[in-house]
Amino acid sequence: MTSLMGILQTIPQFADFSQSELTAIDKAFRVENYADGETVINDGDRAEALYLILNGEVEVRRRRRDRAGYALVEKRHAGDLLGLTALINNDRQDATAVALGKVQIASLPQSAFELLFDTHAPIALHFQNLIARQLARDLRHFDEALRSAVRSGEVKDMASTLQSD
């Protein structure tokens, strides 16, 4: 079985992490395997960890306002982080994440996340850049969707745009 370190070395987002940084991450994260359809994150749960997809695909589902089904679905891939906004804002999860097929995920418990940031400044900085880049990319994506709504008035198009990614 490939080690976490071995997998991280294949993920482009970690290409500029040094060997010692990858070793620290390898020690702090816990690798878990999810079966098809298994829930990784539950909407409404308290933030407990940061999740990094190592391989496979995860579907992030946002509930309709009337809670009857899901209105918005996004797919996330290897290298993507999950549960970011809840962890950073110390809030509840605002979406459900479900494995599509077999998925391997590395999780970093909140306490370890804080410890890593308090004690390993260079790793924390590197990781923060990764987090900031994903948040900025997600925001850019949402902004484009909002802009498309303004332009066309067809909100349903936004859902399909997000779904096709």
Partner: peptide, 18 residues
């Protein structure tokens, strides 16, 4: 960025509901 993203998600859901 995280707070803004969360607000964007809420707004999108509002727009979809509307």
């Amino acid at each position: 960025l995280a707070a803004r993203l969360r607000a964007s998600n809420r707004l999108l859901m509002e727009l979809i509901a509307r």
